[in-house]
Write a protein that binds this DNA or RNA. Structure first.
Lengths: 207, 207
DNA sequence: ATAATTTGCTAACGAACGTTAGCTTGTTTA
DNA sequence: TAAACAAGCTAACGTTCGTTAGCAAATTAT
């Protein structure tokens, strides 16, 4: 049913011609899952976005959950790569936290839809992927916790429960995908800088 | 199928005996929607939680969406009541923001499951409820924006995009439901105080 | 030129979905 | 005591769901 396929989708498909069909499929799925949520998105919705029949999707994928799983773990790896570069640098806790916040922000902004799916839809993964995902998430948070604990030990930061502080900071960062507008006033770097400024000021000891 | 009903549910039903059957139904739905998400929760799941048949639910409700709608708008009203008390007080912007943050925090902590549904599942509302909900949400945010703009005009706060600041602060608050543990170290009031301290320090001018 | 791969189709499956109709039973109200 | 209501049941409806089987055409690789 070609008439149901929007011009926008055609344009995108042409622009991103280098993408394999499977990649195009996962891109369309990412946008669909972001808009409607995973559970409310049907394979027929997805097929319609691509201008094909639902059954044809299965030439490219094994199951609906496989798509979700690919999106979630690809994003998880992106976040890890970003923080791994920072962890090894020999700088103050404040500087490390600033860079980590900016890096996290950049990953979200570069992948707005995929981040949204990553953040909200992971719970629809089945076992054992679900536990694997949760463990990665915990690892990632622990890297932030270590930075803040270092800052508290250094007297750079106020005495605070580090886990509480991390959850609070990450939750502000993880809201970006809901309001970020590529045509808005703030550039991705400015957003990261403002957020790290607010977060770190919130932690720093006041004289 | 009584064997499928957990002891926990029976206990809860006994403790909250004063609740009408419809209220019990909405309570069970709130927990279910929080755990699995609205779209992934079936009426048969819900019926099973109450130990009755799915068709029996319709003696109490008109539709699945009606349950969601009730949860969302009841919570919206709770948030409004909390902030309306603060708006009219004649205190500094910092003090107003502190009280607003603490009030918001209290509402979430007193209704952890309902807050979770309110924050994540509202998008499954149909029109015209959906637009009505979005408008209320915008109104609520605008009350926070006004407080911060007042603080910027007063030189209490740094010069910052007020909407950006509000979205950042609210997103940290709106994450509480994911980690709050009634048996944890921090009391509801302490959580509110810590969060307002972090948020307001992040906004205040540093000398 | 031929074989293999990619990409799609139609038809259909069994299961699960939200919901309705019509009925029974126990409790409360007039 | 009779009427009204609350709360549940069984049976079933039409629809949508994710997915499979088997086949056809086009493209790519050998």
């Amino acid at each position: 049913m070609l008439t149901n396929v929007s011009l926008f989708n055609f344009e995108r498909m042409i622009i991103e011609k280098k993408l394999s069909r499977k990649e195009q499929l996962e891109l369309a799925a990412t946008e669909l899952f972001k808009e409607k949520g995973y559970a409310a998105s049907s394979m027929r919705d997805l097929a319609n976005k691509l201008g094909i029949e639902a059954a044809s999707l299965y030439s490219h994928i094994k199951s609906k959950e496989e798509i979700l799983s690919n999106i979630c773990f690809r994003m998880a790896n992106e976040f890890f790569e970003a923080i791994n570069k920072i962890e090894i640098e020999n700088i103050s806790a404040s500087a490390k936290l600033e860079r980590a916040i900016i890096a996290h922000t950049q990953v979200i902004i570069k992948n707005v839809s995929a981040s949204s799916v990553f953040l909200h839809e992971w719970r629809h993964l089945n076992q054992p992927k679900l536990d694997e995902f949760i463990a990665m998430r915990e690892d990632y948070q622990n890297k932030f916790i270590s930075i803040i604990e270092e800052g508290i030990a250094n007297d750079e930061f106020i005495s605070i429960d580090a886990k509480f502080a991390v959850l609070t900071i990450l939750s502000s960062l993880n809201w970006i995908h809901n309001w970020y507008d590529p045509n808005g006033k703030m550039s991705p770097l400015e957003i990261g800088q403002q957020l790290s400024r607010m977060s770190i000021n919130g932690l720093k000891i006041r004289f």
